[in-house]
């Protein structure tokens, strides 16, 4: 995880009100989000390489998808789901400053 963007470890929820056309904004899970009917997606980067994604579920609560994450030399984060429960993808972290994680859409 040496190439991980500083401060990225932790659990984040999508602050979609702050998104732009090209960026998605995440804030720490304990941030005082305003209530929303649309379930917020979540990302959690654990120091041991475990990745937990929260996806909206059909019963209005998030569903956990557990995978692995690894920082790439170019700063991107590669996410895989070894259990075959999801397609791998890459996250392009643009910044992680003052409790605001900004990811390219």
């Amino acid at each position: 995880m040496n190439d991980a963007p500083p401060g990225v470890i932790g659990a984040w929820l999508h602050s979609f009100e702050e998104d732009t056309e090209t960026t998605a904004v995440y804030r720490p899970r304990d941030h005082p989000f305003r209530p929303a009917r649309r379930v917020r997606r979540g990302l959690e980067f654990r120091a041991d390489g475990t990745y937990v994604e929260l996806r909206p579920g059909p019963d209005d609560r998030p569903r956990e998808m557990v995978g692995r994450w690894r920082a790439q030399p170019d700063g991107r984060i590669q996410v895989t789901f070894p259990q075959g429960h999801g397609r791998p993808y890459e996250l392009n972290v643009l910044s992680c400053v003052d409790g605001v994680l900004t990811v390219a859409k």
Partner: peptide, 23 residues
């Protein structure tokens, strides 16, 4: 928490958690 308004349980789930939760 998590800015949820509420959540439900579909029929067929465990009876001990059956019902709805509302903020």
């Amino acid at each position: 928490g998590g800015s949820l308004l509420g959540y439900a349980q579909f029929p067929g789930g465990p009876p001990q958690t059956d019902g709805v939760v509302i903020l």
